[in-house]
Amino acid sequence: MSGQNSWVLKGVRPLGGEPTTLFVDDGVLVDAEPSGAQSFDADGLIALPGLVDLHTHLREPGREDAETVETGTLAAALGGFTAVHAMANTEPVADVAGVVEQVWRLGQDAGHCDVHPVGAVTVGLRGEQLAELGAMAESAARVRVFSDDGKCVHDPMLMRRALEYLRAFDGVIAQHAQDPRLTDGAQMNEGVQSARLGLVG
């Protein structure tokens, strides 16, 4: 195989090491030069594995005036990312298979990087009732990371149930480290600066 996704990257320094040549054959790294590969002068450039972001707000669906999957994933590619995890606090919330599949497909269509939707832990991020975790895991988006992000899951029984449920498919919960009672109305870090500036910490 050869062609568009086959490359000879000359002079690269993998992880900052000695200059070498990397060969890509039809999208996979290989040891020898593939036929028909395109050449790229990478003299002295550092080669790293594509960056992976665990926490990205792409705002689509719902707030396409702030960001779309297209613009957010292009920004990601320009920053060196090959995969991002899109957080669930969209409108509607990514708490059912339909929404995570929509975001996943938008990512596929844009093609700038892989988009892995994060599923909400609770319906509507309201912290009252578990979302359809299994359905999101089994959907085309194959969701493995679940989070209510800024809303936090602060009911310990609900968190326990979610953790037990996720074991079935090796899922993980990403919890924003915050207690809503301690941060009610907070505007900044509580400390010398908040006292000086008159802002609630």
Partner: peptide
């Protein structure tokens, strides 16, 4: 070799 060619040049 064998890994998907997901990489960034800096």
């Amino acid at each position: 070799a064998g890994a998907p060619a997901n990489l960034v040049l800096v």
